[in-house]
Design a protein around this nucleic acid. Structure first.
Lengths: 238, 238
DNA sequence: GCCCGATTCAAACGCTCGTTTGAATCATCG
DNA sequence: CGATGATTCAAACGAGCGTTTGAATCGGGC
């Protein structure tokens, strides 16, 4: 055993050829988004990237760690951008709470920017992310909750000020609905066909999608609190 | 080859022992919901059901057909119930359109009933369904769009009457958001921890969940159409 | 009591998977 | 140039997968 092989988890060195690692991560993003994590084999992945089969384990340690690298590369900057926008809004608003519309914008705009940046993953990545939300694998769940915790917490505090009629618990639910609609929408394309109406395919995309989503979400967030409205009626008696 | 083995796709006969098929389908629902389709092996599944490994292929033809049977068993009655409620509402309303609130109730109540019926799958099944929505496997996508087409189409027509300020295309988008929030919410539990606040775990469940979701969705559906509201502002210039 | 189709069973088939190995190659620097 | 460590490579490992096979077992009808 003459060579000091990297011990399964530590990256070898930062002098590593950027080409191989990049080609792997680019091919992985594309294939994971197309077939999902489990259904993407390292053999097809390394073939698509034109690298050796062993390169993934050498450079990333394991298939799971490669997946986390794929997510981190886009997710981290996007959530940082969201927090940055939020902080600017809070600075501009001074003492007053930031409006609900602006908060939603600050959440959606970084996702929109990412979706439009085709060179760096674009919609493909957002679909991958939307699917990861629904994945039962524990390592994915842990990864997502760790990577979203700070951003969601910051926005929840801001929304609490913008929507004083909501309790913290009520708002938690509603932000959950917001994330659901967003992740589901964004993981779409194929899913859209569930609604069995072809959508105009290119001009209609991305920007308009989010401009349709934002008013929907804002109206939902502003709805009266549960206690204030009548209970969900059984459909029977009128 | 003395025995007329079922030709891979045709069910053998309806005289088949109900026990084996039922035990398979029950174990499958539980394991698919816990680990997903790909990550559930027929070996662990048949072991959990206490049947022979070959029984799945004998009674269902393949793992994929078993999965579809698992979904159909719950999905078909639930969507039939939704359509039944819708038809009753339309009959009761006579000439007038059915209200948005009642339409949403008619979509949510059958899901709520199913979620509360622990004996027959309950929340487990809805989580499984929520995950299937985000699955990229083509056979799952085809199955879902076929099984939802009729229900979604009927409700879309009814919502169009209840929300005359929306174009058909705008409504298609909003129903998409509705299904997103619903499927994401219902596939939750683990996902809830993304919002990093423990929810009261049992009393808070199911019924209250949907009673929180309904006002959110109704408000979103009733929001002004996109053209009527100002465009999503870039966050910069106030 | 025997037959025959339906069902169960243990075993195997053929394949793909993620990972590991150890030698070959490459790049850098003394 | 020779040494050293990083990287690539072909090959194999061991395990698990969905499915198929053909014989064993079961159970009702003649």
């Amino acid at each position: 055993m003459p060579s000091p092989r990297p011990a399964r988890k530590a990256a070898p060195l930062d002098t590593a050829s950027p080409d191989t690692k990049s080609r792997i991560i680019d091919a992985a993003e594309h294939l994971f988004m197309e077939h999902g994590f489990e259904a993407t084999s390292l053999r097809s992945l390394t073939a698509a990237a034109s690298v050796n089969l062993a390169a993934v384990n050498y450079h990333f340690g394991s298939k799971e760690e490669l997946f986390q690298s794929v997510l981190t590369r886009r997710l981290d900057p996007m959530n940082q951008e969201r927090i940055g926008l939020l902080e600017r809004l809070e600075r501009e608003a001074g003492e007053k709470p930031v409006s609900c519309e602006k908060l939603i914008s600050a959440m959606l705009i970084p996702a929109l920017r990412l979706a439009r940046d085709e060179k760096r993953g674009g919609k493909n990545f957002l679909r991958l992310l939307g699917r990861a939300y629904a994945d039962p694998a524990p390592f994915i769940r842990h990864f997502l909750s760790e990577n979203y915790a700070e951003m969601i917490g910051r926005f929840k505090d801001a929304f609490l000020l913008a929507l004083p009629h909501l309790t913290r618990q009520e708002l938690t639910w509603r932000l959950h609905f917001v994330m659901g609609a967003l992740s589901y929408t964004v993981s779409g394309t194929d899913a859209l066909k569930l609604l069995q109406q072809a959508m105009p395919n290119d001009r209609e995309n991305d920007e308009l999608l989010i401009q349709r989503l934002a008013p929907f979400l804002v109206a939902g967030l502003k709805a009266p609190a549960v206690g204030d409205t009548k209970k969900l009626e059984l459909v029977s008696g009128d």
